[in-house]
Design a protein around this nucleic acid. Structure first.
Length: 518
RNA sequence: GAUUUCGUAGCUCAGCUGGUAGAGCAGUACACUUUUAAUGUACGGGCCCUGGGUUCGAAUCCCAGCGAAAUCACCA
């Protein structure tokens, strides 16, 4: 057991804790506190229709007196002798509270105000108050406190962020390392961080509602998989002791959802935490969330319409408009979105029509366009590189890119009119991929061949090639109806919908190197 | 993985060409019965990320390490 080294302020707070107990006040009481209103409800309910003069003189208010019980953290104090103002922060926001010594301590004993409130309580402590609503001389809706209860003592000083009348913020808690490592502090102190995460939840709820309204079923599929399929990525590996087998954290849930379509469900979706053992940067975290949905008897054209309706709904649910600011621009999610085929996109941004080129011609074209390529790259990979380098970043407003090379899409049905292409689209927003969808490959023989092709790639040294999943093939052999599937990067979509430029800002607890202990 | 920048009080930050530390907020004490970045007076608070080196002397210069951020590379 190592001795915790306390700074001066932590020592004071522990002393206050002891003194509270000596006074017979339990700093961590067990009983519930009968909260009956939130700070936001008070402000919304009483904001209108009350003349401040009417309310200022409390005696005049006897008839309209509004008793409230609320609780939260003490976030600031302005002590003026026998009266004090403070701010209480609950999950809905902050409200000013007013304490008067002789009202809190009606008898001779003034300890509760003089000692407990003024000395032993600190910023960050949880308290409960009972009192009534009033409006101050300058018009701020406040709570006049009649009873105060200690609910939980805070032993560490919070960063103090102050704001002036113009809304300028002083001493903001901004160090990203501290904010990510101690997200709880970040959330207490930075209102806008809290807003971002509320929007994230709203976004996911909006998606759920959309899918449920269509009658699709939310399901759960295995996170621990013995064959990490459905995507091309390096997995995290683990081991099951009882079975004595290696297991992998899923890199995708696609193959399981398709098994459920085989099983007879019309539409299934899952918010899937996926895990990929790859690099981290401002758009990649080792664990991340993808929403995948599979709908039977549909194709990728249907899915495009479904996707743009979904995105439009999300924007409206979050902002009551389809226009969402992002960085310097405004993204407009008003459906329909433009559809651009990959060949068209490449022609638009390079002036070269590659639709009839073979591998050798493509390699020359790439080099002419200044795209680095090597001899191991096949036709599909070359097109992908060309698109990534020359086109991708140009699609700022929501745009569907359609008809990818079939080699890059081993789980996707061949295009109905061009067997070199796949019936696949990606939704690009702000130059980044947000969603990916297929007319799903349901021909078991073609699927087996595609897996074999992946194995050949693996033998050639492509460590991202997919592993063959025999049970999945068996499922397809029983028959999967024509199906369209869609995957949406929830973290990335949240970034775009909340105007954040790093994934860390939309994950409560982004992956960090372990903190050093000393 | 590469490059660059950063790491000083609980928080936000100063600290020049080397002379072992400052401010604001927060804290402590006192005053103050409607303040709101409350105010006034006084006082505390530092392994200057860690470890080496150069030097009479290092927060400062050099090297290494640890952590973070940005850019690039990689990456369905």
């Amino acid at each position: 057991m190592s001795q915790q080294i306390l700074n001066e302020q932590e020592v004071f707070r522990r002393e206050s804790l002891t003194k509270l107990r000596e006074m017979g006040i339990e700093p961590y009481p067990a009983a519930l506190f009968p909260v009956n209103i939130s700070s936001k409800e008070i402000k919304e309910t009483y904001a209108e229709g009350l003349e401040k003069r009417d309310l200022l003189i409390n005696e005049l208010l006897e008839g309209k007196r509004v008793n409230v019980v609320l609780a939260g953290r003490l976030m600031s104090r302005r002590i003026m002798g026998k009266a004090s103002f403070a701010e209480l922060q609950d999950s809905s926001g902050r409200i000013q509270i007013y304490l008067n010594r002789d009202e809190i301590c009606p008898g001779e004993d003034k300890e509760l105000y003089n000692t407990v409130f003024k000395k032993l309580l600190d910023i960050g402590d949880f308290i409960g108050i009972k009192g009534y609503v009033f409006v101050t001389q300058v018009g701020e809706i406040s709570v006049h406190v009649e009873e105060i209860t200690v609910l939980a003592k805070s032993l560490r000083p919070l960063p103090i962020v102050k704001k002036d009348e113009q809304g300028n913020v002083y001493d903001a808690f901004v160090d990203p390392e501290l904010r990510y490592r101690m997200r709880y502090v970040d959330l207490v102190v930075n209102q806008q961080v809290r807003e971002t995460f509320l929007k994230r939840t709203k976004l996911m709820n909006s998606m759920r509602q959309f899918f449920n309204d269509h009658g699709y079923l939310e399901v759960e599929t295995p996170v621990l998989q013995s064959i990490p399929g459905g995507a091309a990525a390096r997995p995290f590996t683990t081991h099951h002791n009882a079975l004595d087998i290696p297991l992998f954290l899923r890199i995708a849930n696609e193959l399981y959802l398709k098994r459920l379509i085989v099983g007879g469900f019309d539409g299934v979706y899952e918010f899937s935490k996926n895990f990929r053992n790859e690099g981290m940067d401002r758009t990649h975290n080792p664990e991340f969330t993808v929403m995948e949905i599979y709908v039977a008897y549909k194709d990728y054209n249907w899915m495009m319409e479904f996707t743009e309706q979904l995105l439009e709904k999300i924007a409206v649910d979050l902002y009551s408009t389809t226009e969402v600011p992002f960085g310097e621009t405004v993204l407009n999610y008003k459906a329909p979105f433009p559809r651009v085929s990959m060949y068209e996109a490449i022609e638009r941004f390079t002036g070269v029509d590659i639709s009839n080129m073979d591998e050798a011609q493509l390699r020359v074209t790439c080099r002419q366009q200044g795209v680095e390529v090597d001899e191991t790259m096949g036709r599909g990979k070359l097109i992908d590189e060309l698109f990534g380098a020359k086109c991708e970043g140009n699609f700022i407003q929501p745009t569907f890119i359609t008809d990818f090379p079939v080699e890059m899409s081993p789980l996707c049905k061949r295009h109905r009119t061009n067997p070199q292409l796949a019936e696949r689209f990606e939704l690009m927003v702000n130059g980044k991929e947000v969603a990916n969808a297929y007319s799903e490959l349901n021909d078991p023989i073609d699927q087996r061949e595609r897996f074999m092709e992946q194995m050949r790639l693996a033998d050639r040294g492509d460590d991202e090639a997919m592993t063959i999943d025999h049970d999945f093939l068996r499922a397809l052999e029983y028959g999967m109806p024509p199906t369209s599937g869609l995957g949406i990067g929830v973290d990335r979509l949240t970034m775009f919908m909340t105007n954040q430029s790093t994934i860390q800002e939309v994950l409560f607890f982004p992956q960090m190197r372990p903190e050093k202990v000393h």
